[in-house]
């Protein structure tokens, strides 16, 4: 007897939609997964609006709530789904758009909208777990589509998906990528939660810890070592600036305590 397919929705709040394009980039592999589920909502492929009373088994949400309607939609989806999985950096950590939280956001708004800024809705950018209960995360900006495939293969076999606690360095070493830290570049790989397959260091770009830190990191040890490599002053600057890009700074300070 054929099992009832899982009803799945893929939704974007304000975002670049890069996580969903990463899924489309899987090509046939994505279409095969789509065949195994009942993809009832995915606006990149379908016109039809499904009825308001629709209940979902899994809702994937990408992006940041920046419009009032984004907040409403998120809460509404939460009420209508068994599981809510956040997808990508914005939804997981607040991501790049949360940079406004580290600056004068009113000034930033006035810079972009000199005349109409007072009417522009300009909230602090929050990770979705601060607004609704979430049931899982596929991190990275943008998501690693391979991790999505792994996630789906767990779910389709009724297993629960878990990200293994090991650093980005682990994946760098597997790929025999030359160590950027040793070259004197401010790479956060040793602290960062792996699973992305380390695309940044492979491309010569230091890890900016977009997936967030591992749960138990020895931050002080890392700081001591990295200061030896890149110098105290540069470290202070890099720490402050780089960790704002994906809104990770506050998460690091917490794990330091």
């Amino acid at each position: 007897m054929e099992q009832q397919k899982l009803k799945v929705a893929m939704v974007s709040l304000t975002s670049c939609e890069g996580c969903y394009f990463s899924l489309l980039d899987l090509g046939n592999e994505f279409l095969e997964i789509a065949d195994k589920i009942d993809l009832v909502k995915f606006r990149l492929l379908e016109e039809k609006e499904h009825s308001e009373i629709e209940k979902y088994d899994i809702v994937f949400v990408e992006g940041s709530p920046i419009l009032k309607s984004n907040f409403d939609e998120l809460i509404d989806l939460r009420l209508r789904t068994k599981k809510l999985i956040v997808l990508g950096g914005c939804a997981h950590t607040g991501g790049t758009y949360a940079m406004r939280n580290h600056t004068d956001k009113k000034k930033a708004c006035k810079y972009v909208y000199p005349k109409t800024n007072k009417k522009v809705f300009n909230p602090n950018i929050l990770e979705l777990s601060k607004i609704v209960k979430i049931d899982g995360v596929i991190p990275t900006c943008p998501i690693n589509p391979r991790e999505f495939v792994r996630f789906m293969s767990f779910v389709l076999n009724s297993l629960s998906f878990r990200i293994i606690e090991r650093p980005v360095c682990y994946e760098c070493q597997l790929a025999q990528t030359p160590c950027l830290l040793k070259m004197g570049l401010p790479c956060f790989g040793p602290m960062a939660l792996g699973g992305c397959d380390a695309p940044c260091p492979k491309a010569g770009m230091p890890c900016q810890i977009c997936r967030g830190p591992m749960k138990e990191v020895q931050w002080e040890n890392f700081e001591k070592k990295i200061k030896n490599i890149i110098g105290d002053e540069k470290w202070e600057k890099d720490f402050n600036e780089i960790l704002e890009i994906f809104n990770i700074k506050n998460k690091i300070i917490k794990s330091k305590e």
Binding site: T14, N70, R100, T103, C109, V112, F121, E241
Partner: peptide
């Protein structure tokens, strides 16, 4: 129906490499 991400506003004051 996309929120204001204020990209230019947040770039002011940031290092060029970002």
């Amino acid at each position: 129906e996309e929120g204001a991400r204020l990209i230019e506003g947040t770039l002011v004051g940031r290092h060029y490499s970002e």
